[in-house]
Each structure stands twice: as C-alpha cells, then as structure tokens.
Simulated assay, not measured.
Amino acid sequence: MLDADFCQVELAEGVDNLFIEIYMTSENHTARVIIEQSHTNLTYVERDGEVLHEHHSEVKAKSETCDMSFQSIYDFAQTGDISGAIPCLEQQITYNTAISAEGMGNNYGSNIGQLLLLDESNPSLELLCKARAAAGSDARMSGCPLPVVICSGSGNQGLTVSMPIITAAEQLGKSQEELYRALAFGNLLTLYIKSGIGKLSAYCGVVSAGVAGVAAVAFLKGDSQQIIEDTVSNGLANTSGIVCDGAKPSCAGKIAIAIDSGFMSYKQARLRKSYEKGDGIVCNSVDETIKSIGVIAREGMKQTDVVILNEMLKH
C-alpha cells in the first residue's frame, strides 16, 4: 500500500507522545479520527464533516508516578498473598515459554535467540536466559500469531522480564511457589521503573525489564536485598540511553543486551563492585535512581523521540 502511494505519514507537532490522527477519503466520503493519551482512548470521530464523537479525557492530568517502592515490592514478593496473581503468572509462564520455543525452533527476523546459542554445546544459565527471551521477541516482532503476556503494556517487556526467571527456575530446580514469587517481584519492579518513564518514550523499555528480570533471578536464588538493589542501580547506570525506534526485529538484540547488562550488574553487586552515589546517574538509593531515570526519559529524551520519528519517516 505504501508503494502504491496509498497513504502519507507525517509527524504531529506539539502533541503528547501518544497521539494518532487519521484522515481518510474515498470517492464519496471523508472521515477523521483521533486517538490520544491512551492506546484505546478514542477522543474524536468525524464523518463527512459531521462530528459523531468528541471526548476530552482526563487521562492527561493523571500523574505518571506510582505509590510503589522497592521495599514494598520486595516485601510483597517475599511474604504477601500472591494467590490472586497466580492465574496471570501461570498464563505468563505458558504463553511466553511457548512463543520463545517457537522463535528458537523456526526462522523469524534475525534469529537472535538462535544466534546466541550457535556453537554452544553446553550454554550457561546467563546465555540461556538471553537466548530464550530474545527468541520470543524474534517470533513476536516478525509476525508469529502466538499470544504473549505483557508487562508495562509491552509484549517485549513481558518476555524480557519473565523468560530469565522461568529459565533460572527450571535450571535451578526451584519450586512453583518460588517461581511465582520471583515473577511477581520482576513484573512489579518492571512496572515501577517504567511508571516514571511513561507509556511511550525514546527510552527503550527492555532496559528496565532486563534489569528487573535479572534482579528477580537474584531474588529467586535467595540473594540479599542489598545485592538485588545494587543489581538494579548498576543495570540502570549501565544501559540507560538505549533508544526505542519502534517495534521491529532488532528489539530482540536489545533484549539480549539488556539481560546481559543485568547479569554483569548482578556480578558487580555480588563482588561488591557496585557503582556508588555520584557515579553518573547513580543516586543515594535504588528508589532515587529509578526516579532519576524517569526524569531523564521524560524530559531529557523528549527531543530524542522527535528526532528518531523524523528519521524513521525518511524511509
């Protein structure tokens, strides 16, 4: 359709990140539709000049921050009643494992998951975590119709946070209860980090999901709270700045990089080589570092988003 000059795409100026305005014409009719602030928030519908629907949502006024903290997430995952979340977590295990296996066994995108295991007869746990998460993205980004259980509104983030935890639980022989609690921890931590970044940003979402997934592996293994906190801070310091240029095959590569950085950050924490306050964007606490990342993503990368979109529209 693009080759046939079926449509034209332009970047809207002076609007929120999540904004889509569509003009359509046929031989006898015209239509105009606007979606903004939320993926399903239809705010304007017009046909042949007649306004059929107009609604200005209050979504814009809501804060992007949340009431969670690292401590509240950690405590809940350790001892809280997670029974209500188990059906969703079980679905995440089933669906995300299935699409990961599909990507690992078939030809999708750049086959990053398969490439990572090339010539590896006895892959390490770290390598398996990277490969299985990337393989799920390989399939998802290249048309596989299998479902994925998301996190932070993103299938790639759902795969990035869950597959390292699922893989580690299998390899280490952890119980179902331990797996559920680690998944609860990882998913909530991803949501917490992403809440300050916003729904759409030039900041790549798998960075937060990757470090959260590895932090949850540390949680699963029974490491101390301090090691887990340091893993998060180290990981955000290491890979924040990877840009989002849309959903496409190279997301799988970014997933592998994010998880790899997470494991390096975990090793730093275990060996007491973590970054200290004042080392770049590292703050006094993990919560402050997460808050700082949100500011950088929302404010510092706002113009980056515009530049990326304009470059993408050139081709």
Rank of each mutant, 00 (worst) to 15 (best):
A98K: 14
A98D: 14
S100T: 02
S100I: 00
S100Y: 02
S100L: 04
A101I: 12
A101K: 15
A101F: 11
E102L: 11
E102Y: 10
M104W: 06
M104L: 15
G105C: 13
N106C: 12
N106T: 13
G109N: 01
I112T: 11
Q114D: 07
Q114R: 13
L115P: 06
L115R: 15
L118C: 12
L118M: 14
L118Q: 14
L118I: 09
E120F: 09
S121I: 12
N122P: 07
N122Q: 13
S124H: 10
L125R: 12
E126K: 13
L128R: 13
K130I: 00
A133I: 00
A133M: 07
A135V: 01
D138M: 01
A139P: 10
R140W: 06
R140L: 06
R140K: 15
S142Q: 11
C144G: 08
C144A: 12
C144Q: 07
P145W: 05
L146E: 07
L146V: 10
V148E: 01
V149C: 08
V149S: 05
V149W: 01
I150R: 13
C151P: 12
C151L: 05
S152E: 07
S152H: 11
G153K: 06
G153V: 02
G155M: 03
G155Y: 02
G155V: 02
G155K: 01
G155S: 11
N156I: 00
N156Q: 07
G158T: 01
G158Y: 00
L159M: 11
T160F: 00
V161W: 05
V161G: 06
S162K: 08
S162T: 10
I165N: 08
I166H: 08
I166E: 03
I166L: 04
T167W: 08
A168G: 11
A168E: 04
A168T: 13
A169I: 09
A169G: 12
E170F: 06
E170A: 11
L172N: 13
G173S: 12
G173M: 09
K174F: 05
S175E: 05
Q176P: 11
E178H: 13
L179D: 01
Y180S: 10
Y180H: 14
Y180T: 09
Y180L: 03
R181G: 05
A182Q: 08
L183A: 05
A184R: 13
A184V: 15
F185N: 04
G186S: 09
G186Y: 02
L188V: 07
L189Y: 01
K194T: 03
S195Y: 07
G196N: 09
G198W: 03
G198R: 00
K199V: 14
S201W: 01
A202M: 08
Y203K: 06
Y203T: 11
Y203L: 12
G205W: 00
G205A: 07
V206G: 02
S208N: 09
S208R: 04
S208A: 15
G210A: 08
G210V: 02
G210R: 02
V211Q: 04
V211E: 00
V211I: 15
